[in-house]
Simulated scan of single mutants.
Amino acid sequence: MKTEQVGDALFETWTVDEVETALNNHEIVLIDVRTPQEYMFEHVEGALLMPMAFFKADALPGQTDKRIVFHCGSGVRSEKVSRAAIEAGMARVAHMEGGFGAWKGAKKPYIGTNMSTGAPHRVA
């Protein structure tokens, strides 16, 4: 995990392995900031959707029970959202390095779309 001090806040960049471990251990809430269309086509199972276009830092839950980690397709949008959350007063913010592309590249499981039926299915 990489960390950066931004004023009084701590900005963290997590690897896909760190995110997978924390997600499997129920230690984080993974928030996908991609578009609804991107999310519907394929997403990390268990990730919540809060598109960057509708992002409101004050709508986020506190982080007393679980940490919040943002992700997008490549890491660019999730970094922007993370920095916006810091500007809104969050003291500790994290995002996943490389986004969903890195997740798939590391052969992590996700929910995809069966192109012959249009139904969601697990991709291992």
Score class of each variant (00 low, 15 high):
Lys2Phe: 15
Lys2Glu: 15
Thr3Asp: 09
Thr3Arg: 13
Glu4Thr: 11
Gln5Arg: 07
Gln5Trp: 01
Gly7Ser: 06
Asp8Cys: 01
Ala9Gln: 04
Leu10Ser: 06
Thr13Asp: 12
Trp14Lys: 13
Thr15Met: 15
Thr15Ile: 08
Thr15Asn: 14
Thr15Tyr: 14
Asp17Gly: 03
Glu18Lys: 11
Glu20Phe: 14
Ala22Met: 04
Asn24Lys: 13
Asn24Phe: 07
His26Lys: 14
His26Trp: 03
Val29His: 15
Val29Gln: 10
Val29Phe: 12
Leu30Thr: 05
Leu30Ile: 06
Val33His: 01
Val33Cys: 00
Arg34Asn: 00
Arg34Val: 02
Arg34Phe: 00
Arg34Leu: 01
Arg34Trp: 00
Thr35Val: 01
Glu38Tyr: 06
Met40Val: 06
Phe41Thr: 09
Phe41Asn: 11
His43Glu: 01
Val44Phe: 03
Gly46Tyr: 00
Gly46Asp: 01
Ala47Tyr: 05
Leu48Arg: 06
Leu48Thr: 04
Met52Leu: 15
Met52Arg: 07
Met52Gly: 04
Ala53His: 02
Phe55Leu: 02
Lys56Asn: 12
Ala57Asn: 03
Ala59Pro: 12
Ala59Trp: 05
Pro61His: 12
Gln63Arg: 06
Gln63Val: 12
Asp65Gln: 12
Lys66Cys: 09
Arg67Gln: 14
Ile68Pro: 02
Phe70Asn: 05
His71Asp: 07
Gly73Trp: 15
Gly73Val: 04
Arg77Val: 05
Ser78Met: 05
Ser78Val: 14
Ile86Lys: 01
Met90Trp: 10
Ala91Lys: 15
Arg92Pro: 01
Val93Tyr: 05
Met96Cys: 06
Met96Asn: 04
Glu97Tyr: 09
Glu97Lys: 10
Gly98Gln: 13
Gly101Trp: 12
Ala102Ile: 08
Lys104Gln: 12
Lys104Thr: 08
Gly105Asp: 06
Gly105Glu: 07
Gly105Leu: 04
Lys107Phe: 14
Lys107Asn: 10
Pro109Ile: 00
Pro109Ser: 05
Tyr110Ser: 12
Tyr110Cys: 15
Ile111Thr: 10
Ile111Tyr: 03
Gly112Ile: 07
Ser116Gly: 06
Thr117Met: 07
Gly118Arg: 03
Gly118Val: 11
Ala119Ile: 05
Ala119Leu: 11
Pro120Asp: 02
His121Cys: 14
Arg122Glu: 14
Val123Pro: 03
